[in-house]
């Protein structure tokens, strides 16, 4: 990987080795997605794993948005 950025690398990569909460794979609204759990039953979308093409255009599934899901 080559990072081509005008920002200093030490700023970009600060904390890259820190532990983070493991991502969960959940179903929400018929879409399988990877979420970063923030509270029981709620998580921040990391990426969509299994969905229809139009779901990518749905702003509520954008990475970073918060969704509700049933606990796996």
């Amino acid at each position: 990987m080559i990072l081509y950025t005008s920002m200093p690398l030490e700023v970009v990569l600060e904390g890259v080795n820190e532990e983070r909460e493991p991502y969960l794979e959940v179903w929400a609204g018929g879409v399988k997605m990877q979420v970063e759990p923030i509270a029981p039953g709620a998580g921040r979308v990391v990426r969509l794993l299994q969905c229809s093409l139009d779901d990518y255009l749905n702003p509520s599934y954008n990475p970073g948005s918060i969704i509700q899901y049933n606990k796996p």
Binding site: L13, E14, G15, R47, L53, Y56, L57
Partner: peptide
């Protein structure tokens, strides 16, 4: 590589299927 959370990021794995859609 997933960047540390202090970065605001645009994820290409979302942008690419978005363009296809």
């Amino acid at each position: 590589i997933v960047l540390p959370p202090q970065n605001k990021t645009t994820k290409y794995e979302h942008i690419i299927p978005q363009l296809v859609a």
